[in-house]
Design a binder for these strands. Sequence first.
DNA 1: CCGTATTTGTTCGTATGTATT
DNA 2: CAATACATACGAACAAATACG
Lengths: 364, 364
Amino acid sequence: MTKKNGRAKYYVLMESLKQDITDGKIKPGDRIPSENRLSEIFQVSRHTVRKALSILENEGLLEASHGLGTFCTDRARNHSSSHNIAVITTYISDYIFPRLIQGMDKILTEKGYSIILKNTGNSQKNEARALDDILTKNIDGLIIEPSKSEIFCRHMHLYEAMDRLRIPYVFIQGTYPQMKEKPHIIMDDVQGSYLVTKYLIELGHNKIIGIFKIDDTQGAARHKGYIRALTEADIPYDPDAVITFHTEDRDTKPSAMIADFITRGVAMDAIVCYNDQVAMDVIKILNLKGIRVPEDVSVTGYDNSLIAQNGPIRLTTVSHPKEYLGEMAAELLLEKIQGIEDADSRVPRVVAPELIIGESCKKR
Amino acid sequence: MTKKNGRAKYYVLMESLKQDITDGKIKPGDRIPSENRLSEIFQVSRHTVRKALSILENEGLLEASHGLGTFCTDRARNHSSSHNIAVITTYISDYIFPRLIQGMDKILTEKGYSIILKNTGNSQKNEARALDDILTKNIDGLIIEPSKSEIFCRHMHLYEAMDRLRIPYVFIQGTYPQMKEKPHIIMDDVQGSYLVTKYLIELGHNKIIGIFKIDDTQGAARHKGYIRALTEADIPYDPDAVITFHTEDRDTKPSAMIADFITRGVAMDAIVCYNDQVAMDVIKILNLKGIRVPEDVSVTGYDNSLIAQNGPIRLTTVSHPKEYLGEMAAELLLEKIQGIEDADSRVPRVVAPELIIGESCKKR
DNA sequence: CCGTATTTGTTCGTATGTATT
DNA sequence: CAATACATACGAACAAATACG
């Protein structure tokens, strides 16, 4: 359409307007003279003016509004925005992720964005694969829950590629050791774990077993909160009283170790668990061994999941903001897309946890 | 530039040409009739023809050569696969959807596809919005769980647009009344409901209340299965013993109606519920009124959800294939993308349900 | 190479419709 | 309601590129 014929009247007019825009004589948001006015100024027909304007409109430099006039666009921003946001989580169907995604979806849909969903099964290899794939697509931003976030990230080059392409990204639930300064939304897991542990101490417990995941940020933080509460209460921290596990043995090791503790006669009057799922597994094995919860041993969970509320025993647990966390991550990413600096950000980065008291703990 | 005004002559002409291109009537490389010829055929001025052509030229579907004519570009057919699949569900975080999506994701990721996720909150208006949005994106296919599938679909034009663009789609969980012949993956809900109802009859119950959702395919099918089992056992079907509800009152009406039945002294020895969620609500209100489950009344659920297995009472319910259903939908869609005809399809379309016996029913 | 027919490209004039202020 | 601005539409003319006899 845009032919070389530089002598054409519409072409001259088009070039003249384009020059004014690039020179800044016409600034984004400015209204340009009306079609009739331009046809007077340039001594051409209105049709010729329209032809020139239609080219600039197609190039995205101008925008005509019926009844209002023709305006210079703000194309410096949102240049060819795809309105796609990638979301990479560790799991899809695990108990808190659906609601996390729902929170993001709520905000993003409102603003006209679509979500491209990926999950890694908490494997860094799959995360790298997902990032690789996403880099070939046209996306405006990324929300990512890192896989095994406490392990050194072995695909930094992919994040660097994102930086080079100016694609903003926001971490949720945790960040890699190398990337602690990157924008992220987390809950205060140290505080949450501190709260449950302190609660157990106040109930009179002092032989408190801890079970923590060690390959993600949350596990490390929850471990830290547990230690803080013990230390504060002058209960010596005993590493042998703590069971640690990885993603791979999460379904077997906690139960097996507790069973082992019981046969070895390790003293325990309470167990602080990494999350509700582990807590339920622990309660199951305790019951199997003839130990009652909460009469013989108190058990706490974390995340306030569906299981915590609707299971056979209502768990004492820690609130997880779920939707809210997702919403905040989406809001923060939108800020980044709009180019708002961290200094001017209005999105909170850390959510405070809350103790939720159920029926799985009892005074000693 | 491309305005919505569908009545404009240039717009009609433009759409007509576009359709001929997507339908293959005009193939890449073909010369389309000259401007003068088109203005004769469509009885519009040459100026109007040029306006229509300029849009298609801008979209890259046509290319005009001075003195030669206007040609259909290669790029028109060359629908470079985006490897994006849109998935539209009614909900994201409800109990079965995460696993449905997980099933799809498993198959699609394997084949190098990404999922663009949308949810409608079971509103047709939101579904139309989602489809509208998706049509602007470059997708290879769509898996959709229709919103209020038993209600007449008010946005057929969007599905027709999908057909025109040759984007294959597969329904899951249900289909609209007008689209029963379109490819869809469902479970045999008539059979499932028949199984639970028959089970209750075999336990000696004959005053069996039914609670069904009436705005989706599943609800209608489950209602049908309930009636079939009663009829087969020569128990007269009593419409007054059936409670129906819509999406909007799903959290209130079932409980309220059961409470009303109790105060009115309606005879009941068993309740067949639309799904596990309703069953749990019903059990809650029964307990509140001092009626024990299963001692006084038997209650059945449907879907075999987390709640059914981990709740205070293990529900007697009907299996829901969840992941498997999602996997089949993905497989079927991939077949469609590869252009495999229904006759040669290897993907089963209907999944058989299975009765899962819990502790919420008792012999009379 | 010329001439002619065909086709797209440029330009003007004019009229009417519709959205916004 | 009137004025303004963009949107649609028709008709007409000439220019420039191309194909072909």
